[in-house]
């Protein structure tokens, strides 16, 4: 008895019917195909048509359950067979096989949003580029600055330290672009003390000029941890609220690769308070569900934004998006720009 019902179901869904199941109902299964093909079927043919059938119409609960399981099994079997067949074809084709289709996800089918940021950092945040950073200094750096550049490059993944060798920045930048660097960091030194930092995003800017102070190297830190590992750190950007702050924050964020390696438990913090940006580098440890321990790894320094320039470094003929003018802007103690 179940066999007959099964074949009746097969007539409605010819694709799902296993091949070789020939029985009485086959006659019926052919009839509707003709009926659909020929326009205006006669009354007699209509009478011959089997009643349309689907699992959901079965009233008997046990029967319905049984049939439904059967249907699912069949579908699965078919799917696996198709998969096997495709795989076989791929192996047969070898290198000539067409590329695998990209699976559809909610992420990659995201609807267009007109407010998506389209600034110079968009390629980084759209995961089209990975940061590659060149760190250099002003000409003839002395002890502390040299050490600082080394420690900075140990923190920033995929960064390289180069000696300046008296080269002009405007000459370095085209070479950097040709070698696919995405950022350029230049440390300035005055009387052996690092006092300035130029951060330039490549290839089309912007360029930020910071005043740097309170540099403390790893060696000078109290209760410091062991040297940082080569894991990609997490980045925390605190309190960058204004439009200008956002662009500066995006600039810092784009120094470090997108996916942090959480196993390293290392975190770089850019904390903005009163327009001073405090940099700290920590390792953390979850001691229990409630307690977390942090250990500073160093170095630490403080930055203050002097200017933001559109385009790559061109201090003479470049156009400035924002320049800090102390006498004009710092009229109120409660006004902050970042």
């Amino acid at each position: 008895m179940p066999h007959i019902i099964y074949s009746a179901w097969g007539s409605t869904c010819p694709a799902a019917r296993p091949p070789g199941s020939v029985n009485n109902s086959c006659k019926y299964s052919d009839a509707p195909a003709e009926g659909h093909g020929a326009p205006g079927p006669s009354l007699e043919q209509d009478v011959l048509l089997p009643p349309t059938f689907s699992v959901s119409e079965i009233k008997n609960k046990q029967r319905h359950h049984y049939m439904f399981l059967k249907l699912k099994q069949d579908r699965r079997r078919e799917k696996l067979a198709l998969k096997k067949k495709r795989k076989k074809e791929r192996v047969a084709l070898g290198d000539k096989a067409p590329p695998k289709p990209v699976p559809k996800t909610i992420e990659n089918q995201r609807e267009h949003d007109e407010t998506t940021e389209t600034d110079e950092f968009a390629p980084y945040f759209n995961k089209q580029t990975t940061p590659k950073i060149l760190i250099t200094t002003s000409d003839r750096p002395r002890g502390r600055t040299v050490k600082f550049t080394e420690q900075l490059s140990s923190i920033i993944p995929n960064s390289q330290v180069y000696y300046r060798r008296g080269l002009a920045l405007k000459k370095i930048i085209p070479q950097c672009i040709a070698r696919d660097f995405t950022d350029l960091i230049v440390l300035n030194e005055d009387r052996k003390v690092p006092n300035g930092l130029i951060l330039s995003h490549l290839p089309d800017g912007p360029t930020a000029h910071f005043k740097m102070s309170n540099v403390r190297l790893r060696k000078e830190m109290k209760r410091k941890g062991k040297d940082p590992t080569e894991h990609q750190p997490e980045v925390i950007l605190n309190n960058f609220t204004t439009r200008l702050g956002h662009s500066i924050g995006r600039m810092f964020a784009s120094l470090v690769p997108h996916e942090p390696q959480f196993t390293g438990r290392q975190v770089a913090t850019f904390h903005n308070q009163w327009d001073y940006i405090f940099f700290r580098f920590h390792r953390y440890l979850f001691k229990s569900e409630k307690r977390v321990g942090i250990q500073e790894l160093g170095p630490r320094f403080t930055l203050k934004l002097r200017s933001l320039q559109k385009g790559t470094f061109d201090s003479k003929y470049g156009e400035y998006e924002w320049v800090h003018k102390r006498h004009e802007m710092d009229t109120s103690r409660r006004k902050f720009h970042l």
Binding site: K310, E319, Y320, E321, W322, V323, K325, E328, M329
Partner: peptide, 10 residues
């Protein structure tokens, strides 16, 4: 003659 204050960028 005079300067007009308040501009932050070019």
């Amino acid at each position: 003659l005079c300067t007009l204050k308040g501009c932050a960028g070019s």
